[in-house]
Design a protein around this nucleic acid. Structure first.
Lengths: 372, 372
DNA sequence: CGATTCCATGGAATCGGTTCCACGAACAGG
DNA sequence: CCTGTTCGTGGAACCGATTCCATGGAATCG
């Protein structure tokens, strides 16, 4: 338990027989160094197993090589995917990621943004919620490079990468209309969140366009978590004139809806159609497989990092809207029981590269194949 | 774009009419301050919207209020849950979490551990992999407080929170034996990881104990990712004498196995039984619902944080082994087609509080119920 | 060959907090 | 009334890097 004093750059310089300044230049890649001192410093650093103190470094240089990622919940598979792609893209460019879970709470969001400010992160990628107040303003007042991802905040003008849900939702509504549904139930997200507002708006437009029933009782406001999706399904399916199809504004609520339908003895697909916003790897494994509005989360995360680095470099990149599209599976297609059992044995979309097993292709790095 | 100089504690002190030292004492909660100067400093800080520079603070105080969490992949629901609980528990105690995804790669693990060292995190919670070499050793040589979670490394003696998989696996094997299976297929994890080794060992013991077939061809070594689970199922089910039940050592591989079984036209439960290690919220939503070995991830994360804080305080807490237990669902129970359709409408375990919709009860904080 | 540029280098200032230390005032005890 | 604590305070050192600036030697140029 001898607490040996940590190795500093002074020790490295001393061992290498050069000044502290030279050691620093070598170790931070400054070109103004002779090959001679370069080798001496590097070998001294290696001998001492020197690890520069990031605090000291960034105190002077005002760059931390750290970026903050604010999301609402890692347990939501969509955000887990997003966190993963952001983190990997950042790592590739030499940044580490500080992760903050707002837990769909504005207080905790502020708490994390404050932390990001104190930590002097070089930039922030945020899936924000609520209005523009609080620490979000503090962030911008300090002109800390920021980009929004997935969500935006009205009135705050920062570059963003979002999904254009409109196309997917319109496709979904048309698809359900084509299947003969006229009364759809919509499980909306919390209207404090931009994506929830946009999806609801797009939905309302789409049902008007397709001439479907616009009864406001068919809309239930959830909170983007699974429990509220369950409550929504129960409520909607117990209406006097229940809908024959449900559309959930995010995947956790769709999961909740599936659970509630099971409890109520309602079979998704056969009895009531179900469509989810956000496609998740294993949605195709449910029986019936879940129809979903899909978008490319990996691309979204990488684009957000690229964009943020541009902002850090002083540019002002244009916002990006990524497309969404409907992936039709069994949960929204009427069919007889016979067809159904046939389908179960060989589901339509499972053979191709879109199948669940092959979805890890974002980066086919080191897939050890097997070895028995 | 007027880049105003950031507010420092000097500015706060000047406005409050006290010295820098006093301002610092007030702002860091040092009791040796008069109520008089306390109010003056606090109001000055508020007026200027002062945010202390965490770098400067921790450079001098050698405490960063930051801890590093190293996991292998956030996209694995088990680790997402773990990350969430660790992060929340840490936040409650005033720490922020630096998240590192090793991506099941030792190189990336080292890269993140190096970052943690450079960032001078106050402690590290790691689900490690590989042998004890590399940056793991560097961490311990610097006596940086560390605890292992979920996994351990042979020969490295740090406190850990792990799951005792033995009981769950034995239960699972007995259950399958009782269902009449004699040839089980086992989808093992990579043997560089402690949990994979332990689970395999427990499995081998259990099948010997239950007198089941010990044919080594029935064991397939995957990599804890879904693609390898799919490969495993395909391989095992195409053997000359295929197994009648599969046991997967983690949930992504189980998901891959489900996908592969679908592709092969093999019905989980009815044709081949399937049991997964790690229970996931929506496993009960699959049809048939997946039998799984379950453990309390939230408790694991919280315990890891508690333990780490004790190590930081200079104590030497004892390691903790959390229990696992088998949750039997339809995927491992033989039944007739008639029973099956009845079950689909009201699955056995969905009514009670263990149902999927209610699984968010780890912390029933602010569940907005609904509002329509 | 002398003047000028180039370049690697070391000394010292610096980033923005925390903390050591000395000091003076207030207060309690004898 | 004098001594001994206690307590809040300010000045200054300090944490460990980066970076400004001056310097001297080598290389280049007229």
């Amino acid at each position: 338990m001898t607490t040996t004093a940590p190795v500093t750059i002074r020790d490295v310089a001393a061992l290498a027989g050069v000044s502290q300044a030279t050691a620093s230049r070598v170790l931070s890649g400054n070109p103004a160094t002779s090959p001679e001192s370069r080798t001496r410093v590097l070998s001294a650093a290696a001998d001492l197993d020197f690890r520069p103190n990031a605090q000291a470094r960034s105190l002077r240089s005002t760059r931390t090589q750290t970026l903050g990622l604010l999301i609402s919940d890692v347990r939501n598979p969509f955000f887990a995917d997003l966190a993963h792609s952001v983190e990997q893209a950042a790592l590739d460019r030499g940044y580490v990621t500080l992760l903050g879970n707002a837990n769909e709470s504005t207080d905790q969001q502020d708490r994390y943004l404050d932390t990001f400010i104190s930590q002097r992160v070089d930039g922030v990628i945020a899936a924000p919620q609520g209005a523009g107040g609080g620490s979000l303003t503090a962030l911008l007042e300090r002109s800390i490079p920021t980009v929004f991802v997935d969500r935006t905040v009205e009135g705050i003008d920062v570059p963003s990468v979002t999904t254009d849900g409109r196309a997917g939702i319109r496709e979904a509504v048309r698809h359900l209309a084509a299947e003969g549904h006229t009364r759809l139930g919509y499980i909306a997200g919390p209207q404090a969140i931009s994506t929830a507002r946009q999806r609801l708006e797009a939905y309302l437009e789409a049902i008007a366009e397709s001439g479907l029933d616009q009864d406001p009782h068919l809309i239930f406001y959830g909170d983007f978590r699974s429990a509220s999706g369950a409550a929504a399904a129960e409520h909607l399916l117990r209406l006097g004139k229940p809908p024959t199809a449900l559309l959930a504004a995010d995947s956790p609520m769709a999961i909740g809806a599936v659970a509630a339908m099971r409890r109520l003895g309602v079979r998704p697909g056969a009895d009531v159609a179900l469509v989810a916003f956000d496609d998740i790897e294993w949605f195709s494994l449910l029986d019936p497989a879940l129809t979903a509005i899909s978008h490319d989360v990996g691309a979204m995360g990488r684009a957000a990092v690229d964009m943020l680095l541009q902002v850090i470099d002083g540019h002002r990149p244009a916002s990006l809207r990524l497309p969404s599209r409907l992936v039709i599976r069994k949960s929204s297609v009427r069919e007889s029981a016979v067809q159904k059992s046939a389908v179960r044995q060989a589901p339509a979309e499972s053979a191709g590269p879109a199948g669940p097993g092959s979805r890890n292709d974002t980066k086919q790095s080191d897939q050890k194949e097997q070895l028995e």
